[in-house]
Write a protein that binds this DNA or RNA. Structure first.
Length: 483
RNA sequence: GGCCCCUUCGUCUAGCGGUCAGGACGUAGCCCUCUCACGGCUAAAACACGGGUUCGAUUCCCGUAGGGGUCACCA
């Protein structure tokens, strides 16, 4: 059964690679789901195959159009849209029922008239006696039909002897005794399919060759195999990738903060290429490589190097990566993204011009927007506490001198400004920092900013002079204070 | 609890019988410097534990401990 083929064993090897991402619409694209999608996408791309999408919306209560839209939105943002229009599982219930009937006809399944209440009772009893509960329906070997009109479910007639083995591409060989696999439900009493049936039928009809999904489905794979074998359908190769945990090692949940990729985009100001790279490196590695482009990822990705142990989500590392991608990002694009966050009309051209010196100082779009504030807000900026403290009388007097000197300059280029201020510093016997800091405070309202000459140039002559004047104390001011 | 899976620096990982156990994030220090960043350099930091197998185990096997997953007419 084991195969030397890099794409995995089983009957899958002769068919063209088809993977699929099959989320259930829960309101957003889960960060773990995004990685699963990524792995499926990469695997298909790497092998020149197809990557499909299927929305598991058979749970009507939980599925809303908004939730479905949110998932598509997240996938598109990450560049992980399907190669074909998504399949909606709910639309295929007739097909699912048809297969259930086939299974019934072939004797691989049976009608079970046990009610949910009866089952609950038996479960409770088993619980009380502290023995494992396994459904053992008396209808399994009774070929009679129940009384007409009584509701029934269709259960698989699962083998009880022997064991089932999966050669998982990630987990390796995993064997489970068939005694562990019960006669699970295929078709509910209302005629709708369960997940177990729907997955098998849809994967088959979509010609899926490689099922790459979360570790939490490993146990399901054994059940799905039972159906597959009863049907005599080809078995896909399985790859169960470990889950992503929160920073504390526990399963990722709401209390860990952002769960949906939309939150990383909207709230945390993360770029899609950064999340792509981060998710790729979570659970998968390629030597010492950290910064990996899409193209490179497609070339390098292999299931064999997916780790077997769960990994923890580390926001700091994501942000570091994001900082890297922001520095590489196009200035116009960043200006546009920042303008979007700020929400009101801004000078896009100015923002774009400022971007080279702004973006090296930010690791997400929020910080980028904050850093751009002094440029965007009109007029002299309000002083923060540190800036206020910095602007002593002495410093303000210095600003007066600077203003005087700068006012005489018409050139207003970075080079000229630098020469002028360094000259002044020398004349006064001061370090450049002594001039730059008060200047920075007056110009930006903060004690940190891009290089002071860049700030001066970006703000322009008129605005710069006005801001300096607003904080400067003239010689006359000082004189009047002495009196 | 039954079954299944996992275990290399704090975190993500490289390693696939013999390595000074490598890289990255984070942390600390230094350099660069008008501030903050960027960048560069340096440092501290790991093979969970116990048995085997072997000339030799981080690497292979078995236990222990810890962590995770799963046990629906949910997906």
């Amino acid at each position: 059964m084991a195969s030397a083929d890099a794409t995995g064993g089983g009957a899958a090897e002769s068919r063209p690679v088809v993977t699929r991402f099959a989320p259930s619409p829960t309101g957003y694209l889960h960060i773990g789901g995004a990685r699963t999608a990524l792995f499926n996408w990469l695997f298909a791309r790497h092998h020149g195959g197809k990557y499909l999408l299927r929305i598991e919306d058979t749970d009507r209560a939980r599925s809303t159009d908004a939730a479905i839209a949110a998932i598509h939105d997240g996938l598109e943002w990450l560049g992980l849209g399907g190669d074909e229009p998504a399949v909606y599982q709910f639309a295929r219930t007739a097909r699912h029922a048809e297969i259930a009937q086939m299974l019934l006809d072939s004797g691989h399944a049976y009608r079970c008239y046990l009610t949910p209440e009866e089952l609950a009772e038996r479960r409770a009893l088993a619980q009380a006696e502290r023995r494992p509960f396994r459904i053992d329906s008396e209808w399994r070997d009774c070929h009679a039909q129940g009384p007409a009109g009584t509701p029934f479910v269709i259960r698989i007639r699962a083998p009880r002897e022997g064991e089932t083995v999966i050669d998982d591409l990630v987990q390796g060989r995993v064997a489970v005794s068939n005694a562990e696999i019960d006669d699970f439900v295929l078709l509910r009493s209302d005629g709708t399919p369960t997940y177990m049936l729907a997955v098998v039928v849809d994967d088959h009809d979509m010609a899926v060759t490689h099922v790459i999904r979360g570790d939490d489905h490993l146990n399901n794979a054994f059940r799905q195999l039972v159906i597959l074998r009863a049907l005599g359908w080809p078995e896909p190769a399985y790859a169960h990738v470990p889950l992503i945990h929160g920073a504390d090692g526990a399963k990722l949940s709401k209390r860990h903060g952002a769960l949906g990729v939309d939150a990383y985009r909207d709230d945390l100001g993360i770029l899609p290429e950064a999340l792509f790279n981060y998710l790729l490196r979570l659970g998968w590695g390629h030597g010492d490589d950290e910064i990996i482009s899409r193209e490179q990822a497609i070339q390098w990705f292999d299931i064999a190097h997916v780790g077997k142990s769960p990994s923890r989500f580390d926001l700091a590392k994501l942000q570091n990566l994001n900082g890297h991608y922001m520095r590489e990002a196009d200035d116009g694009r960043l200006a546009h993204l920042v303008a979007q966050r700020i929400g009101y009309d801004v000078d896009l051209m100015l923002l774009e011009r400022a971007m080279p010196v702004l973006k090296v100082r930010a690791k997400d779009l929020n910080e980028l927007a904050t850093g751009a504030r002094f440029l965007i807000a009109p007029g002299p900026p309000p002083l923060d506490a540190k800036a206020e403290a910095l602007l002593s009388d002495e410093a303000r007097a210095l600003l007066g001198t600077i203003h005087e000197r700068l006012e005489a300059r018409v050139d207003w280029t970075s080079e000229d400004l630098e020469a002028t201020l360094k000259e002044l510093a020398e004349e006064l016997g001061l370090g450049l920092g002594k001039l730059a800091q008060p200047l920075r405070a007056a110009l930006t309202g903060q004690t940190t900013s891009p290089g002071i000459f860049d700030v001066l140039v970006l703000l322009g002559r008129g605005e710069s002079l006005a801001r300096i004047a607003a904080q400067a104390r003239t010689a006359a001011d000082l004189d009047s204070m002495k009196e």
